[in-house]
């Protein structure tokens, strides 16, 4: 990379040299620990994941095991990338995923600490990659609509007030990355679960299973061993999609309504 020289090299595009403190762990049973790497000649325009790619290329050339981390779409919509960077989920910027984080958010010479999501329900697979299947199991327990969708209905057949549609859509923007769990001091999954409960509870299509759904999803969440919410608000602050904790209040309402006033039960 260093051989590329720009005619108008200014401070913004000057390449950076960084020190990385990366969590390395062979497998779920390994104790793991930090390993320090030098990341030299990093363009400030690279994304954080591209920077890791460069470091990994160096490791592969040296015959070492590259750093394992999750990634897929690299445009902030798949929810696959994670990383706890300098004490923050998805790094220091708000409302973005790690793949949307650029190296210009760091300064030359900086030491960056990179850790995996930490939660009993998200066991480390290897290095920085964690197993987030607990989220899948919660979704499978109730995050669906089982009515027959049939043909395409007329656009205005089911009137939904715009603010309700907006609210449901906001909840539905959750990409299930797990930053809420990672950022929460209690490793609670309530923001995730509440977003999934909300997006369906708000819309007419979700009414049939509404009260059974919230019970099933909360029960599965508890079974997975996530912590309890203490309303710190860290989850919504770190959520790349800025899902609001209003969803948690709504989930609580849905849950208590279903438990105390409805006949639906889960088996």
């Amino acid at each position: 990379m260093s051989h590329i020289s720009h005619p108008n090299t200014n401070k913004m595009s000057a390449h950076m040299n960084l020190t990385l403190k990366v969590w390395r762990q062979k497998n779920a049973n390994d104790k793991g620990g930090f390993v320090t790497y030098k990341a030299a000649d990093i363009s400030p325009d690279m994304s954080f994941l591209e920077m890791l790619d460069v470091v990994n290329e160096g490791l592969i050339k040296k015959g070492e095991d590259p750093i394992h981390f999750d990634h897929d779409c690299r445009e902030g919509i798949c929810g696959m990338c994670s990383l706890y960077i300098n004490g923050r989920a998805h790094g220091p910027k708000r409302a973005i995923t790690t793949c949307q984080l650029h190296m210009r958010s760091f300064s030359d010479g900086e030491t960056i600490t990179i850790e995996p999501w930490r939660a009993a329900a998200f066991p480390v697979v290897k290095d920085l990659a964690v197993n987030r299947q607990a989220f899948d199991r919660i979704q499978q327990s109730g995050g669906y609509v089982s009515i027959n969708t049939g043909g395409v209905p007329d656009a205005n057949e089911i009137p939904i007030p715009k603010f309700i549609a907006d609210e449901a859509f906001n909840s539905a923007t959750c990409i299930g990355c797990g930053a809420c769990v990672a950022a929460c001091k209690n490793a609670s999954a309530m923001l995730f679960v509440s977003a999934k409960v909300s997006q369906l509870a708000l819309l007419p299509q979700g009414q049939q299973e509404r009260y059974q759904r919230v019970q099933a999803m909360v029960a599965q969440m508890d079974e997975e061993g996530f912590g309890n919410c203490t309303n710190t608000g860290a989850c919504e602050a770190e959520c790349p999609k800025e899902i609001s904790i209003t969803n948690i209040a709504r989930m609580n309402r849905e849950y208590f309504t279903s438990k105390f006033f409805k006949e639906e039960e889960i088996h």
Partner: peptide, 8 residues
């Protein structure tokens, strides 16, 4: 729920 904490 978080047996291993964060270093930072």
């Amino acid at each position: 729920a978080r047996p291993v904490g964060y270093a930072q």
